Computed example of a mutant assay.
Amino acid sequence: METLERLEATIAARKSADPDSSYVAKLNAGGLPLMARKLGEEAVETVVAALDGSDEELVGESADLIFHLAVLLSARGLSLSDVMAELDRREGVSGIAEKNSRSAQ
């Protein structure tokens, strides 16, 4: 988890930097629509790499996906720890049962 904590610290430090010198700041300046679009692009690229790419391509696209997710979460005042807590909550619960519980809401 140290890597993800360092990533979140870097994102926090660069949020308000000059968008011309920081990709994180550029994403934040573009707002949630830009961040969401970039996350979607990375998700698609990850799927394509999973289906047609090498292991190295899949790992690289997965890293991009996690990075963009962390940027988006940070912009919403959330963290990867929040996501981990949700995964912990779901541990031991059937995926089908968990999905059905969300559909009932």
Results as ranks from 00 to 15, higher is better:
E56W: 06
M84G: 08
E56I: 04
S101A: 15
G31Y: 02
E5M: 14
E57Q: 12
L39E: 01
A13I: 07
Y23E: 09
E41R: 11
A9E: 15
L39I: 05
S79Y: 03
E91K: 15
V24T: 11
L32N: 06
R14H: 08
E57V: 01
R102F: 08
H68W: 11
T46S: 10
E86K: 11
E45W: 04
D52V: 05
V24W: 04
S62P: 12
S103C: 07
D82H: 10
E41I: 04
R89Y: 08
E56L: 14
V93K: 15
P33F: 06
V24N: 00
A17C: 10
M1P: 11
R37T: 10
A85K: 10
S101Y: 05
T10H: 08
M84D: 13
E5K: 14
P33R: 09
L32K: 14
V71D: 02
A36N: 04
S79P: 07
L69G: 06
H68E: 08
S101P: 09
E61V: 02
R76I: 03
D20G: 14
L27H: 00
R102Q: 08
A29N: 03
V71E: 04
G53R: 06
E61Y: 02
S74N: 10
F67E: 08
A43T: 13
S81H: 15
L27W: 01
E8D: 08
V24C: 05
E5D: 13
A104W: 01
G95L: 05
E91L: 10
L7Q: 07
R37C: 05
A9K: 14
M1V: 10
F67S: 04
H68F: 15
A70I: 02
A85W: 03
D52K: 11
V47F: 11
E8H: 12
S103D: 14
E98Y: 14
V71W: 01
S103E: 12
R14G: 01
P19N: 10
D88T: 11
A97M: 11
L27T: 00
I11P: 00
I11W: 00
D20V: 02
V93W: 15
I96N: 11
N28V: 14
N28R: 08
E56Y: 09
G95D: 12
R76Y: 03
E56A: 15
S22R: 07
A104R: 12
L87T: 12
S101V: 06
L78F: 08
K26A: 09
E5R: 10
R76A: 15
A12R: 04
L51R: 07
A70E: 00
E98M: 14
A43Q: 05
A17P: 00
L7M: 13
A13H: 13
V47N: 04
E91G: 06
D82V: 02
Q105Y: 05
A13E: 13
S74T: 09
L51M: 12
L27C: 10
G60A: 13
P33V: 02
S22E: 07
L58E: 05
H68Y: 12
E41Q: 10
D18I: 12
